[in-house]
Amino acid sequence: MSRLLAAVLAAFIAVPAFADVTLLNVSYDVMRDFYKDYNPAFAKYYDAKFKDKVTLQQSHGGSSKQARSVIDGLEADVVTMNQSTDIDAIVEKGKQINAGWEKRLPNEAAPFSSLQVLIVRKGNPKGIKDWNDLTKPGVQVIVPNPKTSGNGRYTYLAAWGYALKQAGGTDAKARQFVTDVFKNVPVLDAGGRGATTTFMQRQIGDVLVTFENEAEMIAREFGRGGFEVVYPSVSIDADLPVAVVDKVVDKKGTRKAAEEYLKYLWSPEGQEIAAQNYLRPRDPAVAAKYAKQFPNVKLFGVSDFGGLQKAQKVHFDDGGVYDQIAASIAKK
């Protein structure tokens, strides 16, 4: 008995052989699959180039929740988020990342982008074609919570922007439009993955609004037969930014590996893996190669809202427009 116990203990205490460098990538929900492919590719590249082993650890959750954890001391070497405001929050509140991070890498430090699409049930029984169909009575819309998830915020801004771009669109009309959309939301999950599970696994709702790349994941996991992707007439360009966490890498001495890890995202290999995961690549050659899977959609940027930081302040901070909309819906 005691020998068995010793054997069990030994098995548990035995730590896997430590690699030379360990990087923790704190990321958001729907990026799991991309980094599952990207991490081994990068480890191989790094080993070949620097004769150094690198072990990659992952942590996933809602984008803002993850940023909050980094602010509270989760020792991430790199953060890969879906909104620049989440990285800005780390700069401001935690000071673990130095200001000017978006200038240190190309494309405002966003190696790829995505956009919000509408996912409907097979055959599109409710005839959903564009954003205005989400306000129809009897249509249930599944969206993650804009307070905790960048995915939800992009949906909110996309709907707002759509209403603004209609003939005679004003901020007041856009606000009413967004209110009508959120009136049709039966559950608000905290993150994008939770929303997908609600829609696909629990079969709640008529339309799921999420990133284009998440649609591909649904196809891989649940099969292509169960749903259809609807590209709306306009959508929002969602840049997905990355940054090295200066304070952590300087303390751990992992700066070189962390910077290489992010730079490699812009390499043809990194861009190709992105495209395979339905993230819209920056590299023109890779973009041309995968053009077929990325239909042309008219896009507007967050610059229409004066940048994400301003949008955050006006719409999503406590007491902002989203809170007012949520309160007005709750009253009814």
Partner: peptide, 9 residues
Amino acid sequence: MFGAQGWWG
């Protein structure tokens, strides 16, 4: 208490 922004962080 123990977070980077906490009392003893």
